[in-house]
Write a protein that binds this DNA or RNA. Structure first.
Length: 863
RNA sequence: GCGGGCGUGGCGAAAUCGGUAGACGCAACGGACUUAAAAUCCGUAGGGCCGCAAGGCCUGUGGGGGUUCAAGUCCCCCCGCCCGCACCA
């Protein structure tokens, strides 16, 4: 069987006589570039369409995920262009980030040089895909002419009260003296040092995204072209809940404890109160108590990842103190510390009602606490505790008999009357901490002065540029170690002062790049308001679902914050969103159990997987999994582009699976697309004389049918592309090709034949732009296909003149017949019953009923 | 634990409204071409059974039940897989 290598040989032999993919593809890319066909400017006379794929991190080489992402976007961009839209389709580089610093540490490469080299290499690769990108709008986020604008934004946010500084908990690596991202914490240890990670408080800059919690939540409703799943994820992330905050009095202590609950209705079932281990009161009440330190350690050793905590048992520590029940005179509730209470949510403390909450139930069972049922099912049925559904109140004095929702408001009213608290709306969303203790990011334009405090860098001193002469020999932030960079004079008083050495979270750059593309070369301001107004919002945004929450939510927040600061007036950045699936590939292991790259594996004569080199030792094929470097089941797009060409790669990645599902990359499937491209080329070249011949006489019925099929195909392809069903669009075009290939044109048919062939070429253009541009030119067109409008569909040809009617007896198919479209029910029934096979099958049976659905089906009920 | 999604041939998948299940492709098999193989081209194909054949019968969309003239599609229960998450009080 053929693996990749034999397929290349196949190409070489074929190439000599037929379609030279490499040369032809290169030729057309050059023509497009020479004619600058993808460059656009604002044109108020045309409808605009903004297609955007998530911009890549310049890691060095493109991967298959990029190929899928940008192929999808390019289909949309080319289709919309053909439809006459003024299409903006830009590309750029999300160029700040940790990998550049890792490269610096690991192989002594300067982050800037490393990044720019990667950009150069990846630009070549992306261009080789034949994407319809306006490269004049290229944006690189690590360039001072990009990041100086976000320093200005930050200063504006500061003025508007949208940025502030506060203490935040971070993961601290005591050996490296650095803050760790969550993914850098492995089993509670620093990924590089292996030292146990500490939780430490640091002063961090934050953005007030919580100011927009309600607005961000509400506006999700308007995002009707976003996937349902992403909208739900964002809703859950914002996490609005209605509840009640109230204060417990701690008996025998001069302290109170604020708690938050969404179930004030269950207050009569309260049997304990509990707070987070890192609650300020915990230390106060328990310091020195036996077992307290151990308990704290036990809680911290579980780790912060939700997966670990999930497995963990609910454990508590009895403070020995009690709180007063707010409604029941003289009732005391024991006060615990508990590992399942988060300091970050609500007030970091709760009351526990074991009968109506699973966690509280587990906890009470473990510690032998009282369990009082206060909610019963409304239908009086028997239940087992805990019962967490709504119902009617029992054992609840003045609330008895009320429904769950009624008693919630009654309980809140009572709390308010007693002056203990109030009904509140709570959000899960926290402010966005943007400080990072790293070199390769945008410097935060702040200066600290002993006398003047925190001083913004004056705008005329922007940008605060990163120094190039930097070393990574010491642990910690290189900016802080730089001998001179941070030492400046205070802009206010002129005394010695120091710069902020933290840099922005890299989500800062990606939160506004889509706006920068509308005016990428503006030196004075981040983007002109009128240009942003023309192009925004992005009509179609495409990317991985892994950005469903953070990047997309931050961008939505930025759009609002920038509006507040007068930069733009767009309500939402992304009107349409599409999230693509992953690319999977079979995994292989050699006899020693080591992972083997697919390109090193072939099938031998008997169909077994073996190593491509040496003695062809056998290889074990494993599961189909997400492409990853660690499992070595990756395919390098460069190899594919070089050997099969961009069109085949694009076609295959679009044709097999719906784009939102995972795609299994197979060499054989790719070969199928490659063969199709060659077949289309050789067929049209062979038929060229016939296609271009002037018709003699009237066209045959078969030719008219072919013309209809062509129009129907284009119609279906258009709707499929709009619905992101690229696989169906490809299938439809293959059907049209099959019909054309089978068709034997008569002398009067050539005009219609040509029309069908050209519709095929034009329909294929968004997926296979090089091939179709070549064939278009071969058929004598002097105008580029990229400049040619999407084929017109004659609505008359969408209507069939005959319909295939299925005839069923008792719901089972017996025959199919052709009838003119819109044959009356009576005539259809007559025709069905007179069909011989139907008549035979009905012999001796009584016809009870006949159901006729025009143009579709006749079902005879008989028995 | 919570939330979301999915389950159709050997495989990836199609199937507006409930109305001919399996389009299109991959792999497979048969044939043509070839000294031979590959490529290419032509053809076959859900599974099972009967038939020399034409054709016919049964069965089939994870499992069970229901609604309907008719269910991949709607309803109920069950099983399996995948994804997201910050125990959300």
């Amino acid at each position: 069987m053929l693996g990749l290598l034999s397929a290349i040989n196949l190409r070489d032999s074929k190439m000599a006589e037929r379609y030279n993919i490499r040369e032809t593809e290169e030729k057309w890319r050059k023509v497009w570039e020479d004619h600058n066909v993808f460059h656009v400017t604002e044109d108020p006379s045309k409808k605009k369409y903004y297609v955007l794929e998530m911009f890549p991190y310049p890691s060095g080489r493109i991967h298959m995920g990029h190929v899928r992402n940008y192929s999808l976007g390019d289909v949309v961009a080319r289709y919309r262009t053909a439809q006459g839209y003024n299409v903006l389709h830009p590309m750029g580089w999300d160029a700040f980030g940790l990998p550049a610093e890792n490269a610096a540490i690991e192989r002594n490469a300067h982050p800037k040089d490393w990044t720019y080299e990667n950009i150069t290499a990846m630009r070549v690769q992306l261009k080789q895909m034949g994407l319809s990108i306006d490269w004049e709008r290229e944006v690189t986020t690590c360039a001072p002419d990009y990041y100086k604008h976000e320093q200005k934004m930050f200063l504006d946010f500061l003025k508007e009260g949208l940025a502030y500084r506060k203490e935040m908990m971070v993961n601290w690596d005591p050996f490296e003296n650095t803050v760790l991202a969550n993914e850098q914490v492995v089993d509670g240890k620093g990924w590089r040092s292996g030292a146990p990670v500490e939780r430490k408080k640091l002063n961090q800059w934050s953005l007030k995204i919580t100011d927009y919690a309600e607005e961000l939540l509400e506006a999700i409703k308007t995002l009707d072209r976003w996937p349902e799943k992403v909208r739900i994820m964002q809703e859950n992330w914002i996490g609005k809940s209605q509840g009640c905050r109230f204060t417990f009095n701690i008996i025998d202590k001069d302290e109170t404890l604020d708690v938050f609950t969404t179930r004030p209705d269950t207050l009569f079932g309260a049997s304990f109160a509990a707070m987070a281990v890192d609650h300020p009161l915990a230390q106060k009440l328990c310091d020195g108590k036996e077992g307290f330190k151990d308990f704290v350690q036990q809680c911290q050793s579980i780790g912060t990842s939700e997966a670990a905590i999930e497995q963990a048992e609910k454990i508590g520590f009895n403070t020995g103190h009690f709180v007063d029940h707010p409604f029941i005179e003289g009732k005391k509730l024991p006060l615990f510390l508990a590992n399942f209470i988060l300091m970050d949510y609500g007030t970091g403390a709760i009351f526990g009602c074991p009968a109506h909450d699973q966690r509280d139930f587990d906890f009470a069972t473990k510690y032998g606490l009282e369990i009082t049922q206060v909610v019963a099912p409304a239908d009086g049925s028997n239940i087992e505790l805990p019962f967490t559904d709504d119902g009617v109140m029992i054992n609840s004095e003045f609330m008895n008999g009320l429904s769950t929702s009624e008693s919630k408001s009654v309980a809140i009213k009572k709390i308010e009357e007693l002056g203990l608290g109030e009904g509140i709306t709570q959000y899960r969303l926290r402010d966005w901490g943007i400080s990072r203790q790293r070199y390769w990011g945008c410097p935060i334009p702040i200066i600290y002065c002993d006398d003047c405090g925190t001083v913004p860098v004056p705008e005329n001193q922007l940008p605060v540029e990163l120094p190039y002469d930097i070393t990574f020999d010491k642990p910690g932030n290189p900016l802080a170690h730089h001998p001179s960079w941070k030492h400046v004079k205070c802009p206010n008083c002129g005394k010695d002062a120091t710069r902020e050495t933290d840099t922005f979270d890299t989500f800062f750059e990606s939160s506004w790049y889509f706006a920068r593309y509308t005016d990428p070369k503006n030196d004075g301001i981040s983007f002109a308001k009128n240009k942003a107004a023309y192009w925004l919002p992005v009509d179609q945004y495409i990317g991985g679902v892994e950005h469903a929450v953070l990047h997309l939510l931050y961008s939505r927040f930025f759009t609002r914050a920038l509006s507040k600061c007068g930069y733009m007036d767009t309500p939402e950045p992304f009107a349409g969103l599409y999230t693509q699936g992953m690319i999977n590939h079979m995994t292989y292991k050699d006899k020693d159990g080591k992972w083997v790259y697919p390109k090193d594996v072939i099938k031998d004569e008997s169909g077994n997987w073996v190593l491509a080199t040496g003695n062809h030792e056998p290889v074990t094929a494993g599961r189909v999994e997400k492409m990853s470097k660690s499992k070595r089941n990756t395919i390098d797009p460069q190899d594919i582009l070089d050997s099969y060409g961009a069109d085949a790669a694009r076609m295959f990645i679009l044709s097999d699976s719906p784009p939102d599902r995972d795609l299994e990359w197979t060499e054989a499937g790719l070969g199928g697309s490659w063969r199709f491209i060659n077949r289309v080329h050789s067929f049209i070249m062979d038929a060229k004389a016939t296609i271009l011949a002037a018709p003699q006489g009237a066209p045959s019925d078969a030719a008219k049918q072919l013309q209809k099929t062509a129009h129907q195909t284009i119609h279906a392809v258009g709707s499929a592309i709009e619905a992101f069903h690229m696989n169906k669009a490809v299938a439809k075009l293959r059907e049209l090709y099959n019909a054309i290939e089978e068709f034997k044109p008569q002398s009067g048919d050539t005009a219609l034949y040509k029309e069908a062939v050209e519709y095929l070429i034009r329909g294929l253009n968004p997926m296979a732009p090089h091939l179709t541009e070549e064939l278009w030119s071969e058929l004598g067109h002097t105008e580029l296909l990229i400049k040619t409008a999407w084929p017109e569909v004659n609505p008359e040809y969408l209507v069939a003149d005959s319909a295939t009617i299925a005839i069923q007896i008792n719901g089972k198919l017996k025959a199919t017949i052709q009838l003119p479209v819109d044959t009356s029910k009576e005539d259809a029934e007559k025709a069905a019953l007179s069909e011989t096979s139907v008549a035979n099958a009905l012999e001796g049976k009584a016809i009870r009923k006949v159901i006729v659905v025009p143009n579709r089906i006749v079902n005879v009920v008989a028995g």
